[in-house]
């Protein structure tokens, strides 16, 4: 039975009163955590730290603020500006369309075929599309795309203003294509959490459909909606694959600027510039994700 006690021993039993054997068993239990701890330190903590601090050093390892100052150079600031702009536009459009779809799905069976298929499709497009979605859009609105050719047939030239699909504006449709599914995945649980009793109370008190949505549902859903909006922003802001597949050269948004800093072999010290850019990105990500988790916390209060 001693083994059983060991197995279920609460964490706080460590102390002066323990026998040596018990202490060894206790240590052994912590030993079980080391593989994961070592792994996470090597491949998450160290890379993240390196990514953030290399910006403060020169190629030779001397401390410098030049790279950080480099973030505030007009052309880099403009890149951050484009990233913000693309992320904000696609997050807002994605959030609104996604929320509409969630609304349309209200009242369908969560485990029915319709919802299972939409959930799975959403996950695929939201999380694993990347390069492949870029292909799909080239096949749709590229130079010889299905829609381009069709529109050309009726006298509309999609590319009258230049090859915009392969520039920053071209990111918008593709990003929206993965933002809407992400919104469906993240916002559906909140909509699902609206309680029937609230609607009943609204009806009993003489309210109608309009008062239910304006006085109850929308105020209750607001934090979750804005939280999801922030998540979508972060998602677009940090996404790289689609942009890299569409825009083969140049550094129009921050992830692409990191690419050119990483792969350029001609300019020395560019890797440290990549560090500075990574730092700038992480600052934005931390602020946005912090906002997201605060708003999620507010939502989960009434969701359970």
């Amino acid at each position: 039975m001693t083994t059983l006690t060991d197995a279920s021993a609460p964490v706080h039993t460590s102390g002066a009163g323990e026998t040596p054997r018990r202490r060894t068993v206790h240590l052994a239990k912590y030993l079980g955590l080391t593989p994961f701890a070592v792994y996470v330190i090597l491949f998450l903590a160290i890379p993240t730290t390196l990514a953030v601090v290399t910006g403060f050093f020169t190629e030779d390892g001397a401390f410098t603020l030049d790279n950080i100052a480099g973030i505030f150079a007009p052309n880099v600031l403009a890149t951050f500006g484009s990233s913000f702009w693309v992320s904000a536009v696609t997050a807002i459009v994605g959030a609104i369309v996604g929320a509409l779809v969630c609304y349309a799905l209200l009242g369908t069976k969560a485990e029915g075929t319709l919802r299972t298929v939409i959930d799975s499709l959403s996950s695929v497009f939201a999380q694993f599309g990347g390069v492949m979605l870029a292909f799909a859009f080239i096949a749709t609105i590229g130079n010889q795309g299905l829609i381009t050719v069709f529109l050309r047939g009726i006298g509309i030239d999609l590319f009258a203003n230049g090859p915009w699909l392969y520039q920053v504006p071209g990111l918008l449709p593709v990003y929206i294509y993965f933002q809407v599914p992400l919104m469906i995945i993240t916002f559906m649980p909140a909509l699902q959490g609206l309680k029937v009793q609230w609607a009943e109370a609204n009806a009993t008190l003489g309210g109608n459909r309009f008062t239910y949505w304006t006085r109850i549902a929308i105020p209750v859903l607001a934090p979750s909606f804005i939280g999801s909006l922030l998540l979508l922003f972060a998602n677009a802001f940090s996404s790289y694959a689609t942009a890299a597949a569409l825009i083969s050269q140049g550094s129009q948004i921050v992830p692409l600027q990191i690419r050119s800093a990483l792969v350029s072999e001609t300019v020395l010290g560019r890797e440290n510039m990549a560090g500075a850019l990574a730092l700038g990105m992480i600052v934005v990500m931390v602020i946005v994700m912090w906002g997201y988790s605060v708003l999620q916390g507010r939502t989960s209060r009434w969701q359970r």
Binding site: L42, P47, L50, A51, T54, A234, S238, M281, I282
Partner: peptide, 18 residues
Amino acid sequence: IVPITVPAIVLVVGLAPV
């Protein structure tokens, strides 16, 4: 959950030396 906040494009900067 950290890897959501530290996106691949940031992680890769530190992964290169690792």
